[in-house]
């Protein structure tokens, strides 16, 4: 008999995981940062167009030390949280009303779908006329953006609950409230978490829009003032802060998902 060529089946654990996952994920961004610094240092990227990472880091530490950045962040985060809570309550309440009952759906859904087609940024002029130029229109804008995302996803989540499980709940003697609490709401949770992530992204977007229009504090205010003085370093610091806050929010939701959705038998990637 002629010999057969054999090759070992390498276990996944031996081949992978030599570098920790978090470290692997940071290499891409670090490389881009390095490229940027090199371009600035060699003059390929002039500083009046975009400041170098080193300059930006210096500016950032200065802004942190004199307290302007922490104060602006606090103001902006507060606006987002307020808008998120208000929009969240309205969106989830509407979704529950139309998701749980046929009557609620008939009354609520058509109106929400109608308002949803209006680009919410277009509401800014009306909000200024109605609420002046204080905190109210900024928070309202954020709440508006958040409301629709949560509404759509929570509603879809509720309507996506497996009818077989509802029937099982019925046969086990659950009443209407018991069904909602033990079957419908937990089943709608994955949808709700998706909605939360979308609404957080929208909330930061709405914050940028809201703050670039007649704000006298917050990150958007710093951003606008920097534009008047051509301070590209300050502008980039503000953008990084926006991004970092968005990333932090996403991290919080991811953690929530990991804790609340650990029962989910879904594909998690290889």
């Amino acid at each position: 008999m002629s010999p057969v060529l054999l090759e070992p089946v390498v276990p996944l654990s031996a081949r992978r995981r030599s570098v920790p996952r978090w470290l692997r994920r940071t290499t891409g961004p670090l490389f881009l940062l390095l490229l940027w610094q090199v371009c600035s240092a060699t003059g390929v990227l002039p500083s009046d167009m975009l400041a170098s990472p080193g300059t930006i880091a210096g500016t950032a530490s200065g802004m942190i030390q004199d307290g302007t950045l922490p104060h602006a962040m606090l103001v902006s985060v507060q606006r987002v949280l307020n808008g998120l809570v208000i929009g969240g309550i309205i969106g989830v309440a509407l979704a529950l009303a139309s998701g749980l009952s046929r009557l609620g759906e008939d009354l609520v859904d058509a109106s929400v779908q109608m308002f949803r087609t209006i680009p919410w940024v277009g509401m800014i002029p009306l909000f200024i006329i109605w609420m002046g130029i204080g905190e109210a229109p900024k928070i309202a804008l954020i709440a508006l953006g958040v409301t629709f995302h949560l509404y759509l996803n929570v509603y879809a989540g509720i309507r996506g609950v497996d009818a077989q499980l509802i029937e099982a709940g019925n046969s086990l003697g659950l009443g209407r409230w018991g069904l909602i609490r033990h079957v419908v709401l937990p089943g709608a949770l994955p949808g709700a978490m998706t909605g939360l992530r979308y609404s957080l992204a929208t909330a930061w977007l709405a914050l940028v829009f809201g703050e670039t229009i007649n704000a006298d504090d917050g990150i958007g205010f710093l951003l606008n003032r920097a534009r008047e003085f051509f301070q590209t370093d300050v502008i980039v610091v503000c953008l990084i802060v926006y991004a970092a806050l968005g990333l932090l929010a996403d991290f919080i939701v991811r953690t929530l998902e990991r804790l609340l959705l650990q029962w989910r038998p879904t594909f998690t990637g290889k």
Binding site: L165, A168, G169, L172, G173, H182, V183, L189, W263, P265
Partner: peptide, 17 residues
């Protein structure tokens, strides 16, 4: 038809008065 979001023992007790 077990509720995927409940541990096995909670599934067993579901709906009991």
């Amino acid at each position: 038809r077990l509720m995927p979001w409940k541990k096995v023992w909670r599934n067993v007790l579901l709906g009991l008065p």
